[in-house]
């Protein structure tokens, strides 16, 4: 075989290799809430299986599920369950999405440390975020204007807050928006009248977690189902997973994988 043919064949090989997902390569796309978990798990899995290459990207839950249906990813991450609209789309394309719940997540309302309020009902939280309750004295606190702090509308945390607390109604336009969980912690710690919400992993000294309907947001209360603002985090596959996809999912669902879930700031399943 002469030199040029070798080069030609290797180029063809490289081109095909980069355009198809074949054994030994996993593409994971979707929710940025699940991303830290996927990242930790992928690093550990690749260390154990050096022949497997995992590429990760965000893009949001909707994108993750879409990627499964289109076949551009082997695993689609979502911080919510699949919608009926998406199931219908998958059916028309002959795809059967399979959900795997890989972790749990709780979102905890937080206030400034100096705030006397310790407990709010879901209804009160909703009215605060709708702008109906404007003063802390209406919910049993010391009089003062409530500063409503929310997340950007594209964030997964915001999505869950909107589903479980707002029941699809709109947060007032006057709410401050902060681009990250850390930003909420910072803003609430600095603002005496503020209320915000963060993922369980972000609770820290400068802020005070508020109970919801008498129930504290904790790992235990999320696992026994009593804390109302909790959700499952999912990974979807196209049809029943095989090969490395199956291997990766079993890894996440193992004790070792669930420890990594905890390290990533979410709540492990067991």
């Amino acid at each position: 075989m002469n030199k040029y043919t070798t080069i030609f064949i290797s180029i063809i090989f490289l081109l095909t290799a980069s355009s198809t997902v074949f054994a030994g390569e996993l593409v994971i796309k979707g929710s940025t809430t699940v991303l830290p978990i996927a990242q930790k798990a992928a690093e550990a899995y690749m260390a154990e299986h050096p022949d497997v290459k995992i590429s990760l990207s965000g893009g949001g839950s909707g994108n993750g599920i879409k990627a499964i249906i289109d076949g551009t990813a082997s695993i689609g991450n979502a911080s919510r369950f699949i919608k009926q609209k998406e199931v219908n789309l998958a059916n028309t394309k002959g795809v059967y999405p399979v959900p795997f719940r890989v972790a749990l997540d709780a979102i905890v309302p937080v206030v400034n440390k100096g705030n006397a309020v310790t407990d709010l009902t879901l209804m009160q939280l909703k009215d605060i975020y709708l702008g109906k309750i404007k003063d802390w004295k209406d919910v049993g606190g010391t009089p003062g204007k409530i500063v409503v702090i929310s997340r950007d509308s594209s964030s997964g945390t915001f999505g869950v807050w909107k589903d479980l607390v707002m029941k699809k109604e709109r947060v007032i336009p006057g709410a401050l928006t902060v681009p990250s969980n850390g930003g909420i912690v910072q803003a609430v710690a600095n603002t005496p009248g503020a209320i915000g919400y963060v993922g369980l992993g972000y609770l820290s000294d400068g802020i005070k977690a508020v109970k919801v309907g008498g129930i504290a947001g904790s790992e235990e209360n999320t696992l026994n189902g009593s804390f109302p603002i909790a959700r499952g985090l999912f990974m979807f596959t196209k049809g029943w997973p095989k090969g490395d996809t199956m291997g990766f999912l079993s890894f996440i669902l193992s004790k070792k994988g669930q420890n990594l879930v905890k390290k990533a700031g979410s709540i492990p399943l067991f």
């Binding site: 949001g60 994108n63 950007d152 594209s154 928006t177 681009p179």
Partner: peptide, 13 residues
Amino acid sequence: AAEMGEAPFRSEH
């Protein structure tokens, strides 16, 4: 800056 990272590619947003 805040929303571009999460807006699905070529969506209305």
